[in-house]
């Protein structure tokens, strides 16, 4: 199964390695033609402003939008989540996103780098999963059609950190930075079931 990893900037290598460990065939996506014949695509962690900029300059922005609209499953981690969100708070004035996931995220909602943290999450259907949050976005509001698969309480109540809306998945943390492949497995398994 061919699964794309948007390879413009960020922790592409970790996602690629995780997909390979799960038996999927990772495909680096840098140009529009790389979107052909994919079962799904991952938008990695990185800097969302840089990735958004590079999506536009590489001619990928519109083709990827069309693919997502036509139902290509997509999974965004951290910066990838920001790119998929309906609304981005504390972003740049001209920050755009694909609005594929009915959530409002606040960039760096958990603080700057010194506040970056590790914790243990309880993921629906998986149990305990390591959660690595790096200058992470915070999902502050979400629509009824969004399934919340994991939450985290950072001292101000439970907020979603792993969500799914049909074929669009997003998480605020970095499952790709740990050796635990089960979150990716959820996504990859959903592709096989389609």
């Amino acid at each position: 199964m061919r699964v794309g990893v948007l390879a413009l900037q960020g922790d592409v290598r970790e996602h690629t390695a995780t997909l390979r460990a799960l038996g999927a065939e990772p495909v680096a996506v840098r140009r529009a033609e790389h979107l052909e014949d994919l079962s799904g695509v991952i938008l990695p962690g990185g800097e969302s402003t840089a990735i958004a900029h590079l999506l536009a300059t590489s001619g990928l922005r519109e083709p990827l939008a069309k693919e997502i609209e036509s139902g290509l499953p997509v999974f965004g981690t951290c910066a990838g989540l920001i790119l998929l969100s309906r609304q981005v708070l504390d972003g740049r004035a001209d920050q755009w996103s694909y609005a594929a996931l009915d959530v409002a995220v606040r960039r760096n909602g958990y603080g700057r780098q010194v506040a970056s943290f590790e914790t243990t999450l309880d993921v629906e259907g998986l149990g305990e999963v390591p959660g690595v949050f790096i200058r992470a976005p915070k999902i502050e509001s979400w629509g009824e059609s969004v399934d919340v698969l994991a939450t985290h309480d950072h001292g101000d109540g439970d907020f979603p950190v792993l969500v799914r809306q049909g074929s669009v998945w997003g998480c605020a943390f970095h499952p790709e930075l740990t050796s635990d492949t089960r979150v990716h497995e959820l996504f990859v398994t959903s592709l096989a079931d389609r």
């Binding site: 390879a7 413009l8 960020g10 590790e118 914790t119 200058r135 950072h154 970095h174």
Partner: peptide, 25 residues
Amino acid sequence: MSPETSSTGSQLVKRGLADMLRGGV
């Protein structure tokens, strides 16, 4: 999970930010 089980400043989160900058300027 509660904030008591969270930790900051680990090597993973410190190196992790560098991982996020890869491929960038």
